[in-house]
Amino acid sequence: MVNQEDTFSRGFITGLPVFFSYLPIAITFGLLTRAAGLEMLQTFSFSALVFAGASQFVALNLLNLGAGFLEIIITTFLVNLRHLLMSASLYTKIIDPRLIPILGFGVTDESFAVAGIREGPITVPFLAGLQLVGYLGWVGGTVLGYVAGEFLPEALQAGMGFALYALFIALIAPPASRSGLIFTVAIIAAGINWALTLLGLGHGGVRIVLGIIGGALAGTILDPEGRGLR
């Protein structure tokens, strides 16, 4: 049943961990774009229009290496292909699909993790609040990093790289400690991605997609009715 409390402001507050995990990563991105010689408006547009962290770092890296336009575009597409699965999963939980062309823009690993792991249907205002607070953290952090990132202590700059993983761990550890099936699904997905990486097979984004498919498929085979999720 729809939770009457699932308002815009509830979504905004629920999204605060996403805000705090984005901030340090976005600051790092702003810092790196400045080092790469990009202008302030270019840096801002990067985060405001693409809004997909991993691919932005990869693109910046490729730019620094002198890669071509098409190479960067294709890599971006592959890195972000995983959102296809996440959107498909999320859209089955959204009550009013009409606004998906707008809300779809805000699908990220982190907002999906928060909304997807949350039990029950998702209201549009809740999702909008959740995505907006993450967006503000990402765009605001990028600008902050561009302007002031160099003033942070070096150890903290490096330690901040851990923030996103802390968020992912915080989202998966409680359900995985409660349900053996959820634990198994996460471990299989992790194992597939790790094995493919060790073997040097596929691209970073493709490995994540294969890991997600393998893990979710294992969950479906072990538990076709999805009882482990209720």
Binding site: R82, M86, A176, I182, I188, A189, A190, G219, E225
Partner: peptide
Amino acid sequence: SRIKTFLAYTPFAAMGALIVP
């Protein structure tokens, strides 16, 4: 319903693949 189960397990699988390695 099988596809729905698959999509419902997707967030947990995604966390695993995003964390490791």
